[in-house]
Design a protein around this nucleic acid. Structure first.
Lengths: 257, 257
DNA sequence: GCAAAAGTGTTACGCTTACACCCATGG
DNA sequence: CCATGGGTGTAAGCGTAACACTTTTGC
């Protein structure tokens, strides 16, 4: 099935496979170059960028649907995913002079098409290891790339709102979700971990206090190896002790930033 | 329109007014007799109790739909309501030997009826002033009554799961949501407020420390009046200083229980 | 007068914060 | 050798937690 046929099939027969009136949108976070990144897709048909999203199969759990969608966009399995909010404004897809998304597909679409009706979207946020993801666009998009969370392009629909809320949720859950574990590679340095926390919390932290607190949690192992990273002392690598981390999370982490 | 006609109309024409595949369920909390209560409805057609719920009108914001549904069940306007989770297990309505809810309505219902399809439910929790609510059953239920959160009856579908998650959410948000303000009457005593916190957190708190911390937040006004409540010293009444409370909430309350 | 609950203050401990100097590395 | 960033410890202050006796009231 070529792309045009596939698109046509999705538009006219998608309701047979997917639950109408519902969609999923995911704010996928990564960390690279000391920046918090989010994965966005550039729309073929509208002037703006979109969160990765999709529909729920008729007999599929919504959490599984989110996993499936992100597997398609990143190549990754078993992504850390958390539902954070469902977006149910009846006018959320009517933006820019009340124009619906699919009016722009350049295929005549009847007004009673399943994609032309009101859609409530379930928002998830995801944490992935930047270097392991392979951003891949979908049928509706030209490209799929990481954007610095502080320098975002124009977004379609209510996706800016979705991102803002995802970020707030991430901040508020930093203390009891395995943020670092999911966003960082297996080995990382203390300054990298600190930058991650500083970036998400959007405030500077004291190096010595940060190190003391993090190490006090007993969830990190210091390795022998150091990372050579510039004209100065080389920082040690650390890794998470997965067992201790999981235990600490269920007990509630209690950093006190 | 009598009840039978109304029910018939809802079943066979409801999809014209309401968004199919979606519903709302609300965990409504109240506080009375030093107990945390939740509002439940006894089903006419199934053997168990249910959360107050309903469907979303085709052009209605989901938050407005939740308000409308609770207005019908309690008589109250402008209820404190917060979305906390969307429940999307494809089998969530298939309980007790795969029997769907509406098989029990004693009206023959075709399998492609909108109520027979998969339904994803958006969960809200609500905080109401117990004495102001007027519990009122709906079309599908015999009675609507408050239950002690620690002594619940058998529940239909996944409603026990919904309640558990609502409670966990309430606990975790106790520190930055206006819990007391919404659950207590205008005037209340310090022991009553403490019991509320103890009940939600499910642990005892020290009276002296509790009073110090709460008063330290500057959100309570002590009144002259005392409540005569038994063969012992009479506690003072307090009330919230609404202005200070709202300010404190946006700043983040930070009790430290 | 007695039982039952409310009002109130002080102390110790732990956690959080603030802060400065030396070391390693690359150019 | 110099600039840059990493590694490390201590002291002060604040908030939290622990704790007991007196007062009021109804029976």
């Amino acid at each position: 099935m070529n792309v045009t046929t596939e698109l046509h099939d999705f538009i006219f027969n998608g309701h047979l496979n997917y639950v109408p009136h519902l969609s999923i949108d995911c704010a996928v976070f990564g960390f690279h170059d000391n920046q918090l990144k989010i994965l966005l897709l550039r729309s073929k048909y509208l002037d703006g960028w979109a969160l990765p999203g999709g529909h729920i199969q008729r007999n599929e759990h919504i959490d599984i649907a989110a996993q499936r969608i992100l597997k398609e966009r990143t190549g990754l399995d078993k992504i850390f995913l958390k539902q954070y909010q469902t977006f149910g404004d009846p006018d959320r897809l009517k933006t820019q002079s009340s124009q619906y998304f699919l009016n722009a597909v350049q295929i005549p679409i009847p007004p009673n098409n399943w994609l032309m009706e009101r859609i409530v979207s379930i928002g998830y946020y995801a944490l992935v290891e930047f270097s392991k993801a392979t951003p891949t666009p979908d049928l509706f998009t030209e490209e799929c790339v990481w954007w610095d969370i502080h320098q975002l392009p124009a977004l379609i629909f209510d996706h800016d709102h979705m991102i803002n809320l995802a970020l707030l949720t991430l901040q508020s859950q930093l203390h009891y979700q395995p943020i670092g574990y999911n966003l960082l590679p297996d080995k990382f340095t203390m300054p990298e971990l600190q930058k991650l926390y500083e970036t998400i919390l959007d405030k500077p932290l004291d190096r010595r206090n940060f190190q003391k607190k993090i190490m006090g949690l007993g969830i990190l192992e210091k390795l022998e190896e150091r990372k050579s990273v510039g004209p100065h002392k080389s920082p040690y690598y650390y890794r998470f002790n997965e067992k201790n981390y999981q235990e600490a999370l269920t007990a509630g982490l209690s950093f006190g930033f």
